[in-house]
């Protein structure tokens, strides 16, 4: 599903011409199979979010290559990335990233709008999705009128609305209480089991990492493969 080869990345800090080079990732090789839940763990500043941003296309790699779903994405233009994200990727963010001026319905519906799906079909699909995440009675609520757990569910509904094969989650439980966290993790497991959706989760929370089939740790920009879930459980 995801294949990262010899990926290195460094931030350039300072004025142009007098930049300081700060290496973040070094020679990363990672292969994720379809249907896997992979947790990337590591300390703050280790480069785990940078890896996710590279895989998401929010930043472009200078060395190495990334391919997702058999598509070589490194070297994509901004427009190509936008199209690819819309059709292949779903995102779950720590701070939900819902558009505050839109209702829960409009937030979830938005990817369908971008894709140019007809109004009737959009309405039906969105309501169905909101029902699936248990928010059918909150469709006209704005994000500010929803709890953290409910906002995260809206965010998940938005991520799932176009049935992407891959979901990228950056600290998905970071803003949730323990009860909502449990609920979210069981939902991720359910989605993985029922629909075969691949998950790449960035977390420093062991509870979250525990649902992954595989744990990958980043230490000082280098990747160290962890044990498989069943091994951990054993």
């Amino acid at each position: 599903m995801i294949s990262v080869k010899k990926l290195s990345y460094a931030f350039k800090i300072g004025k142009k011409g007098k930049e300081n080079i700060v290496p973040v990732l070094h020679d990363i090789n990672l292969h994720i199979e379809r249907g896997e839940i992979v947790a990337i763990v590591g300390r703050s500043g280790s480069g785990k979010s940078t890896l996710l941003n590279l895989i998401s296309g929010f930043i472009q790699p200078e060395v190495g290559s990334i391919s997702i779903d058999h598509t070589q994405v490194s070297g994509f233009s901004e427009t190509d990335w936008a199209d690819f994200r819309l059709n292949h990727l779903g995102f779950i963010f720590q701070s939900f990233q819902l558009i505050p001026s839109m209702t829960a319905f409009e937030n979830v519906e938005f990817p369908l709008v971008l894709k140019g799906v007809g109004e009737q079909e959009r309405k039906q699909t969105t309501i169905e999705m909101l029902r699936r995440v248990g928010l059918e009675s909150f469709i006209h609520h704005y994000p500010s009128e929803l709890s953290g757990g409910q906002q995260q569910r809206v965010s998940i509904a938005r991520a799932l609305i176009l049935n992407p094969p891959l979901l990228l989650a950056d600290e998905p439980t970071g803003s949730l209480d323990s009860e909502n966290e449990k609920e979210l993790l069981s939902f991720i497991k359910e989605l993985n089991k029922e629909y075969g959706i691949t998950f790449l989760i960035i977390t420093h929370d062991h509870e979250v990492a525990s649902i992954a089939h595989r744990k990958v740790e980043i230490i000082d920009g280098s990747l160290r493969e962890g044990r498989m879930l069943h091994e951990v459980q054993r």
Binding site: S56, T79, D83
Partner: peptide, 9 residues
């Protein structure tokens, strides 16, 4: 957010 979801420039 729109760009992250998939809105083109």
């Amino acid at each position: 957010i729109m760009k992250a979801i998939g809105a083109t420039p």
